[in-house]
Computed example of a mutant assay.
Amino acid sequence: MPPKAKFGSRIKELRTEKKMTLDQLAAATESSKSYIWELENKNPPRPSAEKLSAIAKALGVTVDYLFGADEQTKAEAEDVAFFREYSEMPEQTRIQLRAIAKTLTAKKE
C-alpha cells in the first residue's frame, strides 16, 4: 500500500479504535469535519505540518506512523507519543509515574 493510501486509512483506523467521531477528531485538532474526512478518503492528502502534528497527538501516535514512512509498529508509535507527552508533564507528575512503573514492574518479577 503506498504511503498516501496508508495515511488516510491509518487516521480512520485509529480514530475508530478510539471511538472518536469525525467531529471529535476535528475539534481536537482545530479542523473541520470535512477536512478530516478528506484526509481519510482523498488521495493525495496535503495536510500542513501543524495539522499533522495535531492529528498524531490526538490519536496518540507519531506522524511517521500515520504516513507509514518507516517500519514503526503501532505500539512503538504509541510509546514514542507517550514519551513526548510524558516529557512535557510537570516534574512531580513524572516522579509519580516513575514510581507507578516501578511498582508494576516489581509485581511482574
Rank of each mutant, 00 (worst) to 15 (best):
K42E: 13
D79E: 13
L22W: 03
K6Q: 15
E91A: 11
E30W: 10
Y65R: 04
P44W: 10
I36R: 00
S87L: 06
S53G: 02
K57P: 00
F7L: 15
T62V: 12
L97P: 00
S53N: 04
L97I: 08
L22S: 01
T105I: 14
Q96F: 14
S87Y: 02
Q24H: 09
R98E: 15
T73L: 08
E40F: 03
L14A: 05
R94W: 12
L39T: 02
Y86I: 13
T21P: 12
T105N: 08
P2A: 08
P90F: 07
S48W: 11
K4L: 15
F82C: 01
E88D: 08
R46V: 12
R10K: 02
L25I: 06
R98K: 09
R10N: 11
E109F: 14
K18R: 15
K12A: 11
Q72Y: 01
A101T: 10
Y86Q: 05
T103G: 03
F7I: 14
V80R: 02
T93K: 08
S34D: 08
F67H: 06
L39N: 00
T16P: 01
Q96I: 15
S31F: 06
Y86A: 03
Y65T: 06
E78F: 05
M1R: 12
Y65N: 01
N43Y: 12
K102V: 10
E85H: 03
S34C: 02
A77Y: 10
D23W: 09
R84S: 14
A69S: 04
E50G: 01
E78M: 07
I36K: 02
I55V: 15
A69F: 10
